[in-house]
Amino acid sequence: MKKDRRDFLKIAGLAAVAGIGAPSAFGSLLRGSDEALAAAPAAGGEEAAKSGKRLGMVINVRAFAAQPELAEKCTEVCHSIHNVPDFGNPKDEIKWIWKDKYNNVFADSSHYKRPGGLAEVPVLALCNHCDKPPCVRACPTKATFKKSDGVVAMDYHRCIGCRFCMAACPYGARSFNWRDPRGKDENGNPFIKTLNPKFPARMRGVVEKCNFCTERLAVGQIPACVEAVAGTGAMFFGDLNDPNSEISQILSLYYTVQRKPSLGTYPSLFYII
């Protein structure tokens, strides 16, 4: 309580001196993550946040090319444990992790002479848990924020449903509850087929997205999608800043790409094509 008030005063004071203390106020405007923006932004390709924990994921598109059914499996397991509703139409659709075409996931690659079949390979898309997330910058209530381990999380209790984060996300990773996710369709079938009693659902009027299975990480498990494809080499998960982690090893062995790296969001998702 006391801390909240102090925070408030700090921010109110900051707002008041915005005119005089322009540089510091500007810094706070740009602040999207815990990391202060003290250092000058690095040149295009360089990565941010080299200290502390930064969880990330590698998606091996080659493995999905060999076993295309894996992609669907990831979506199923994720959506069922997180009580993600299925409205059966694209307008109301809510998705945390889904398969899309290569041409859409990597929409800015204009190269059309590619290895045959790549256009048909299911490529997984999900929240990139950016190091400099534009959604966190946009949220007017801090309902979405960056955790110290790099996960971009949401507090559904605080979300006012303005959908500014959805406009800000360059990856289309966010979904809005246009209607009651706990409701039923015309035939009386619930939108959430079977409820997972260990995880909450959401309510109407809030935004939701992939949480990198933060609830599973807390009890020492890996994200459900990574677990679902275990043993196939299709996905890897771990701390990007730990040079000895499996994911760091993979990233040093394979050439990987990120989605829309030119936007300066520093995604924590990497794809082996």
Partner: peptide, 8 residues
């Protein structure tokens, strides 16, 4: 209880 599930 809009989001959280009561024991089943």
């Amino acid at each position: 209880w809009d989001c959280h599930l009561e024991p089943m």
